[in-house]
Design a protein around this nucleic acid. Structure first.
Lengths: 192, 192
DNA sequence: TCATTTCTGAAACAATTGTTTCAGAATATT
DNA sequence: AATATTCTGAAACAATTGTTTCAGAAATGA
């Protein structure tokens, strides 16, 4: 009986995400967003909602595409340890190549401390990568590729939290060699 | 020939720092600041400067008191390895007890990406703790307390960047046990 | 084709933003 | 005590904030 929404919501979310990613939640204005999304604020409020709601959707989108991206990167038939090593090298590449750091990390420190919904999304994303690592580590242990005298759950937590500091280091010093050397050391620790 | 400044600038900076620490740079308004500092905005602009300048001063203050705090905590006559272990345990205690995470880390991700002065202050602070660790690690190696088949500079970098991820983990999961277990694993790695 | 519903664009909204103004109070020197 | 200088408080500033309004354009189903 009536009109349909004209703009492509998925594309608009993608654009909004890019702005939030670069500038952070609080430094991004509604004008910044509607400019990038190429929609009017009335359309935004009619379909998605207010700024907070939009941000939640963007964080969710970020973790969604990150999941897909990792699935693609690591969909090999190689051994568990080889995949773990790939994971580390891919992570290093992302850290030293992306201009705006990691949106999940930035949002954890800027928004998750105050916004329960954002915290939940980021915690779920963290849990997902944790599970991925946990499985791989267990398999690698079963195959005897890495020593099995440590709790795989502990190793997965440790593994999973190592990147954030490397992001910070790269922001402060911009030194890719530093990151690469830490990664090599980390791999060495894991295997010996 | 004239009046002196009435308010206690050091105390005002301290108060402003607390607000910035809790809320972040962009979410803090000038009213938030002048309320906490208990001064008028005209006094603020006459003495310290604008919001950015005030923030720079607060970040500097944060790293200053952090330096003093660590000097106090670690001014023991114990062995290098014992001091390294103390360092880890103190860091864990700070991480799992502070409500508003670490201002340096938060500012690195929210502000240092865009503000060169803030980046410089945080990089210098990072460099300071790096040097502290580097010296200790070298001493511990000389004394044979930890194995010396790794570059102490690399170990210091690795050591220095490990905390940030633990802060993030604590924000997302609020689980002190997780942090403590990672710390114990880290110590074990270091010594064996 | 028409009626009905929904979406869009531009403008406006009040509130808040960071910053400035300035008259008068306050004080250090003479 | 007089004077000169500086600081403070309250108010105002324009600009921007997030959000809402609403008339009219658009498109659906009858």
């Amino acid at each position: 009986m009536a009109r349909n929404v004209e703009f492509d919501e998925a594309a608009a979310i993608q654009k909004a995400m890019e702005v939030f990613w670069k500038k952070g939640y609080n430094a991004t204005s509604l004008r910044d967003l509607t400019d990038a999304m190429k929609i009017n604020s009335s359309s935004l409020y009619n379909t998605i909602g207010d700024k907070q709601e939009l941000f939640v959707r963007c964080v969710q989108h970020y973790t969604d595409i990150r999941k897909e991206d990792w699935d693609k990167r690591l969909s090999s038939e190689r051994s568990p340890l080889a995949i773990l090593k790939d994971y580390i090298h891919e992570a290093v590449n992302i850290i030293i190549n992306c201009e705006d750091s990691c949106m999940a990390v930035k949002s954890a420190f800027e928004v998750a401390t105050n916004d329960e919904r954002v915290k939940k999304i980021l915690a779920a994303d963290d849990q997902r990568s944790y599970q991925f690592l946990h499985n791989l580590i267990k398999k690698a242990m079963d195959k005897g590729e890495i020593r099995d005298d440590e709790d795989p759950a502990l190793l997965a937590d440790y593994f999973n939290s190592i990147w954030t500091g490397w992001y910070e280091s790269f922001i402060l010093h911009g030194d890719p060699i530093k990151i690469k050397r830490m990664a090599e050391y980390f791999i060495k620790q894991l295997t010996k």
